[in-house]
Every structure is written in structure tokens, then in C-alpha cells.
């Protein structure tokens, strides 16, 4: 839906250009292509001048051990993101329940917590788990030290997303179920929530992108994720630029695929609805 809409507005902006406009578009195409190639040329030239394209900076990427090591780091990232995602989903669910409950105090508390977690950077939560929690003598494995702050920071948005899903379920369904004699919590579990969660799957996948990005601060708590393993590779091969470039590309590809998955889920929902 969104895609076709965008296309239509782009088509409308310049549909059927006349001969003069066509000539100008062609000229602009050639000029911009030239400028972009020039930019690319200067980037590559800079790499060449500084010797960053030398074989010794890139050849170790041909070794399987390099990829095994990066893969292990990636596994750490996935582990932290999965744990963080699950905890965020569960705590977001309870925050949402509190937000729609019939007790005013609960609603207010949930609103405060939601606003609080949404307005604070993940890094601050990470420092809380890294610096403050140990002051109370609580020992936590590094995986939890990164997954928990990431989860807390995502939980507020997850709660809001889930609430928007619950609100999207037509009111008549709840009334119909109540009039059939179902109890309020049964209505919620059996009728409302299964539909709500399906409405918000695309938004939840999009939120997972933020979780994956946030786990890249795992080096603060020295949890072996992609970034942390990259550091080891760098000191082994004395190749900082190439390793970090590859790591950045890995992050971009993962998150790009997650975003595509979210769009795909959204388009599927549209067809079924």
C-alpha cells in the first residue's frame, strides 16, 4: 500500500515530461552520475594513498578462522538482542496491562515508567548496570548486564506499541464476547490480545532493530559481541579500518533485513485484512 502510494506521487511529480524536460533530466542524470563517481573516486583514492587497500589489511578475511571469530561475536549480539527483546516484550506487556487497567494508580504508574524509559538513552541504563548495580554487591553475568538495560530502554515503546494494537481491535468484539458471558480477562486473553499482537508485529520487528543496535554497546560491560570480537581481530592483525568497516556492513545488512521483514509482515497483514 505504502509503496504503491509513494510510486504514484513520484509518478505524478513528473509524469510524461516533454522533450525539453527530458533533455534536462538527462543532463542532470549525467552530471549527478559524474559527481557521484567523482566522490567515489576520491574515497577510493584516499584509501589507496594511505595504503588501506593493501592486501595485508584484507587478506585475513579469506581465512575461515576470521569469519568463525566474527560469527561467534555475531552469535553474542544475537544472544543479547534475543534476550533483550524477550525481556522487553514481557515487561512491555505488563506495562501495557497496567496502562489499560481499571485502577487509576496503576495507569498513572505505568505512564510514568513508560515516559521515563522512553526519554533516557540506553547508554545511561547500561552505565547503571555496569557501575551502580555492582555497588550493591549484586553480581550479574555480562550477558544480563547488556540485555537488561537494552530491554528496559525498549520496554516503554513496546508497551505503547502493544497498547496501540489493543486499541485497534474493534470495541464491538469485547462487547459481543462479554454478552456471551465471557469474563473480562478471558475476553482479553482469547479475543483481544491475539488480534492485537498480529496488528503490531511489523512495529515490534522494527523495534527489534533498535534493540540490535543498542547491543553494540556491549563492549562497555565487556560482553563478547560483534564489536568486542572485532577489537580482538584488530589487535591480532593490526587492521582497524577494514575490520570496523566489515562490522559496520554486517550491522547494516542485519538491520536492513529486519526492516524488510517488518515491511513484508505489514504487507501480508494488509492482504489478509
Amino acid at each position: 500500500m505504502k509503496k504503491s502510494n509513494r510510486k504514484s506521487i513520484q509518478n505524478v511529480l513528473y509524469e510524461n515530461p516533454g522533450p525539453r524536460m527530458r533533455a534536462r533530466i538527462r543532463a542532470a542524470t549525467i552530471l549527478s552520475l559524474f559527481l557521484l563517481l567523482l566522490l567515489l573516486f576520491f574515497i577510493v583514492r584516499q584509501f589507496l594513498i594511505t595504503g588501506q587497500l593493501d592486501a595485508r589489511y584484507w587478506s585475513f578475511f579469506l581465512r575461515p578462522t576470521t569469519w568463525r571469530f566474527l560469527g561467534m561475536g555475531l552469535l553474542g549480539t544475537v544472544e543479547a538482542a534475543a534476550l533483550g527483546g524477550i525481556v522487553a516484550l514481557v515487561s512491555g506487556f505488563f506495562l501495557m496491562l497496567a496502562r489499560i487497567s481499571r485502577f487509576g494508580t496503576l495507569r498513572f504508574l505505568s505512564m510514568i515508567v513508560t515516559e521515563f524509559t522512553r526519554g533516557i538513552p540506553t547508554l545511561l541504563f547500561i552505565y547503571f548496570f555496569f557501575l551502580v548495580i555492582p555497588q550493591f554487591g549484586i553480581k550479574m553475568p555480562p550477558l544480563w548486564k547488556i540485555a537488561l538495560p537494552v530491554a528496559i530502554s525498549a520496554s516503554g515503546i513496546v508497551a505503547e506499541v502493544l497498547r496501540s494494537g489493543v486499541n485497534a481491535v474493534p470495541k464491538g468484539q469485547r462487547e459481543a464476547a462479554l454478552s456471551l458471558g465471557m469474563l473480562e480477562h478471558v475476553v482479553f486473553i482469547k479475543i483481544i490480545f491475539p488480534q492485537a499482537i498480529r496488528f503490531v508485529i511489523p512495529a515490534l520487528i522494527a523495534e527489534l532493530v533498535i534493540v540490535v543496535k543498542d547491543t553494540s554497546f556491549a563492549y562497555v560491560v565487556s560482553f563478547p559481541d560483534l564489536m568486542q570480537n572485532a577489537k580482538v581481530l584488530i589487535s591480532n592483525y593490526d587492521a582497524l579500518l577494514s575490520v570496523y568497516l566489515v562490522v559496520a556492513v554486517i550491522y547494516i545488512v542485519i538491520n536492513y533485513l529486519l526492516n524488510r521483514l517488518s515491511l513484508f509482515a505489514a504487507s501480508k497483514m494488509k492482504i489478509e485484512a
Binding site: 543496535k213 564489536m227 550491522y251 545488512v253 538491520n255 536492513y256
Partner: peptide, 12 residues
């Protein structure tokens, strides 16, 4: 830039 992680970009 919407998919890169902030830490990776800053370190680069």
C-alpha cells in the same frame, strides 16, 4: 545510516 549502530559509526 538508519541501520548502522551508533557505536559502530562513532568508532569508525
Amino acid at each position: 545510516f538508519r541501520n548502522i549502530s551508533g557505536a559502530a559509526l562513532l568508532i569508525l
